[in-house]
């Protein structure tokens, strides 16, 4: 497996979801998402069923990437927080552990101040989880380089995907 593939195991997902659930309650938010910088959704908590999470992940990543580009144009390393204010719902976007994007959707039951405060607190927890996940993945790779189930994919398996 290439070292820059992003691998998520059950234990890691559980811990991330737990942290998101806590953040959602503490911030009184509608929903909280964690998205990979390449646009894949990692984990979510809250009223997620009312959102198209795949589109949300892709557009958030595009938004962050474009803003990163803007930052570099004016000599900044990054803009670590983005905020979009709507009539009812608002989106707070921040970078966590350099590679993930934390998205908090909230309405007037919460506030920007509260959300910022809780996001700052949760970011530390999420960073620790990402660090331990990275260590775990490293150890796993060192212990058994053949552990990937994809090493056993056959040509027939691949062809079968395209046969329908």
């Amino acid at each position: 497996m290439r070292s820059h593939d992003f691998v998520l195991y059950e234990d890691g997902l559980y811990r991330l979801e737990e942290a998101l659930r806590r953040l959602r309650l503490d911030a009184n938010a509608k929903a909280v998402f964690l998205v990979d910088k390449n646009g894949q959704q990692i984990a979510a908590a809250g009223e997620v069923e009312q959102f198209d999470v795949t589109s949300l992940a892709s557009l958030t990543a595009g938004n962050v990437a474009a803003t990163d580009g803007l930052a570099k144009l004016i000599g900044e390393r990054e803009f670590s927080v983005l905020f979009h204010e709507g009539k009812q719902d608002h989106i707070h976007i921040s970078i966590v552990a350099k590679r993930a994007i934390l998205v908090v959707i909230f309405d007037d039951r919460s506030s920007l101040g509260l959300t910022r405060l809780r996001v700052r607190q949760a970011s530390g927890d999420l960073e620790k989880i990402f660090e331990s996940m990275a260590k775990q993945a490293e150890q796993g790779t060192m212990a058994n380089t053949d552990s990937s189930p994809f090493s056993e994919i056959t040509d027939e398996d691949i062809d079968a995907l395209f046969s329908e």
Partner: peptide
Amino acid sequence: MAFINYASK
């Protein structure tokens, strides 16, 4: 960069 999610397979 493939994203491999073992939790949701």
